[in-house]
Computed example of a mutant assay.
Amino acid sequence: MNKKVGLFFGTFNPVHIGHLIIANHMAEFSDLDEVWLVVTPHNPFKKKSSLLENHHRLEMVYKACEGYENLKPSDIEFALPQPNYTVTTLAHLQEKYPTNVFCPIMGKDNLKSFHKWKNYEVILENHQIYIYPRIATGNSEDKFLDHPKITRVAAPVMEISSTFIRRAVKEGKNIKPMLPAAVWDYIKLMNFYR
């Protein structure tokens, strides 16, 4: 049986409840069977220096996914050449799991720059893309919104950022409610973002 798998890409530096709420909403309220949280080792658009090491971010995603049977951590991109692109990951996954149907998940705001993605036409041709809402900033993404390969899911609008969390931890703020408990404990144990 074909399994429909949503791919939620992120540096997850750190993974927070916003990520979990979106991923779980996609797994529970769309036709996706599972959502894989794909930890990206290095986004070509981000400075690598601010990233925790790959295995620490993956460990936090493992801890965050505990108890959610339809959410799975994935380190699939760790073995791919860097910088890596979504189109490469999708091809690699399709080859490794030929019976699965893979569907990238992205925030509505990312559709604005989607046309700049490497081989975005190939992605659109071969994969359904699941979009979750973000606080609106203009309408330049409209050219994709009516595309037959774009599926909008009315997930909660989450405006928690990993950047905010890192800054708050550095300032000694208690932001425990924004993180899965096991992730908060791990950050404290490892003394991250101080």
Rank of each mutant, 00 (worst) to 15 (best):
K3F: 05
K4D: 11
V5M: 10
F12T: 04
F12Q: 05
N13P: 08
P14F: 03
P14Q: 06
V15G: 09
H16K: 07
I17W: 01
L20Q: 12
I21S: 13
I22E: 02
I22D: 04
A23V: 00
M26N: 02
A27F: 01
E28K: 13
F29L: 04
L32F: 09
D33M: 04
D33L: 04
D33A: 05
V35Q: 08
W36M: 03
P41C: 00
K46T: 03
S49R: 10
S49E: 15
S49L: 06
L52H: 00
L52D: 11
N54C: 02
H55W: 10
R57T: 00
R57W: 01
L58Y: 15
E59R: 13
M60T: 05
K63D: 12
E66P: 00
Y68W: 08
L71W: 03
S74C: 00
E77S: 00
A79C: 07
A79N: 12
L80M: 15
L80R: 15
Q82T: 03
Y85I: 05
Y85S: 09
T86W: 00
V87S: 07
T88V: 03
T89C: 01
L90P: 11
A91Q: 15
A91I: 02
H92F: 13
H92N: 12
Q94E: 15
Y97K: 13
Y97T: 04
T99N: 15
F102S: 09
C103S: 15
C103V: 00
P104I: 00
I105V: 13
M106H: 05
M106F: 12
D109K: 03
L111R: 04
K112E: 13
K116R: 14
W117R: 02
Y120R: 00
E121Y: 05
V122Q: 14
I123D: 06
I123Q: 09
L124A: 08
L124R: 03
N126C: 03
Y130I: 12
I131S: 11
G138E: 09
G138D: 10
N139S: 14
N139A: 07
N139D: 14
S140Y: 04
E141C: 04
H147N: 14
P148W: 08
K149V: 00
I150F: 11
R152M: 14
A154M: 11
A155M: 07
V157Q: 14
M158I: 15
E159D: 15
S162H: 10
S162R: 08
F164M: 11
F164T: 11
I165V: 14
R166P: 11
R166M: 12
R167A: 11
K170C: 09
L179T: 09
P180Q: 09
A182R: 12
V183N: 10
W184I: 01
D185A: 14
I187V: 15
K188M: 12
M190F: 02
N191F: 00
F192L: 15
